[in-house]
């Protein structure tokens, strides 16, 4: 009897300290294994976001489709018909919609993750779990809405092809998963950096929504890359979202430029951004409760 209790205790309490809480950790002490242990939590957060967003709405998940549809109609009228911006020979609706669907995923990822600390302060103040679980779950739950919108876009594409429009989806579509990863990574990276900084300096929250809208105009969504005057081109090319959106459009519509070097630049940019983001986030998460 006695021996069993002792054995049990030894099982319950390892001889080594399992965790040491210190004032300062080294910058690179990022515990990704712990995040993996909490993968169930991430899936439950995704489910929560998805279910709660459209509960008690009449149209429910239809909203996923209504938003890009209305934006497309707006853009078609304003930029296509009134301003008369060229779409490079592609049906206007398809041209705008493909840009919007891609951009929406990136921008919602960025906007939603940039509020991680402030929006969840009440949970973070009460219980510990790897804080990164939340922004990651946001990126995944947005992926669900992206998929729905993407399928919707494909329906339009097929319709226009039947109508005999000059669009040609091609083998580049195999790149789309990679593009999605890049968009998710960029959105997450920027989001968590902003989120980490807003715990102290709230000014950034005002900047984000506004900044993302402006950023959209620096990305070839309402205009084709080929139409940009030479002196602005460098600005648009420096934008890591440009090759992503451009490749996305080229893959689906068959018209546009694809530049692998630029795509590589986006990937590199994303990796550096994510690494920096995770390090900053990791540093802030420990004591943000004192400043938020």
């Amino acid at each position: 009897m006695n021996t069993t209790t002792i054995e049990n205790q030894q099982n319950t309490y390892p001889d080594e300290w399992t965790m040491i809480m210190r004032p300062k950790r080294s910058l690179l002490d990022v515990n990704l294994r712990e995040l993996w242990q909490y993968r169930d939590l991430i899936t439950l957060f995704v489910r929560r976001d998805f279910v709660s967003k459209y509960k008690q709405t009449i149209l429910g998940p239809l909203w996923f489709i209504i938003q890009p549809l209305l934006t497309t109609i707006m853009f078609t009228i304003i930029f296509g018909n009134i301003a008369g911006i060229s779409t490079g020979g592609i049906p206007k609706v398809l041209f705008y919609m493909s840009g919007i669907v891609g951009w929406t995923y990136f921008s919602t990822c960025l906007n939603d993750t940039s509020q991680t600390f402030i929006k969840n302060a009440s949970i973070f103040g009460k219980v510990y779990f790897p804080r990164l679980a939340l922004p990651i779950s946001v990126v995944i739950s947005n992926l669900v809405s992206f998929l729905i919108q993407f399928i919707f876009l494909c329906c339009f594409l097929v319709y226009f092809m039947i109508q005999g429009s000059d669009v040609a989806p091609n083998l580049l579509v195999l790149w789309i998963p990679v593009l999605v990863v890049i968009m998710a990574g960029l959105g997450l990276g920027f989001g968590i950096i902003i989120s980490s900084m807003t715990t102290k300096y709230r000014d950034l929250t005002h900047l984000v929504t506004f900044g993302v809208t402006l950023w959209m105009y620096a990305t070839p969504i309402i205009y084709p890359l080929s139409e940009i005057p030479e002196k602005f081109k460098i600005l648009v090319i420096a934008n890591p979202m440009t090759p992503v959106i451009e490749t996305f459009k080229t893959a689906l519509l068959g018209v546009g430029e694809i530049n692998y070097l630029q795509l590589l630049y986006s990937v590199g940019f994303m990796i550096v951004l994510l690494a920096v983001g995770i390090v900053i986030f990791n540093k802030v998460e420990k004591t943000f409760m004192d400043t938020v």
């Binding site: 809480m21 210190r22 420990k286």
Partner: peptide
């Protein structure tokens, strides 16, 4: 939920 300013906490 938050980290100490100085000192260590060890846990098993």
């Amino acid at each position: 939920v938050t980290a100490p300013t100085t000192g260590n906490i060890k846990v098993k």
